[in-house]
Amino acid sequence: MTEALLESIDRAKRTGDFEGLIQQIPYFCFLGLGARVDGDGVVGCLRYSDPLIGNPVLPALHGGTIGALLESTAVLELFWQAETVVIPKTINITVAYLRSGRPVDTFARATITKHGRRIASVFATAWQDDEQRPIATASANFLVTPA
């Protein structure tokens, strides 16, 4: 980790502004990932663009993009909740696809189910118009080490 990246993580933790951090991760820019913080934590956002489509006939979002949104939101929530700057590494993730992702913006929230000394278990939910009607959920384990 270079200083610039650690500084962005630290800044996001202090201010809730993840934009600087996201700008440094090429894959997040490729996806069109955004994030903000509200009273319940981080809300990840996958801004709709045509290259996110996996089924052009329906059309529906590619499952991989929804998986990436859920995993990324879980990582940002771990940054946000941790007392110090930490580097989470994904061990595994299981995504349940509940509804097809329509070609609109998609949002996600993550809850840390258990944060141990080295391992964190996170549950995440993605939705489009109505947070009560999730289009996908994920549970993931992360190896969390101090930066």
Partner: peptide
Amino acid sequence: NPNTGVIHGGAITA
């Protein structure tokens, strides 16, 4: 991770 140049796990998932 721009420091290592490794492809993001999300792309591997996709």
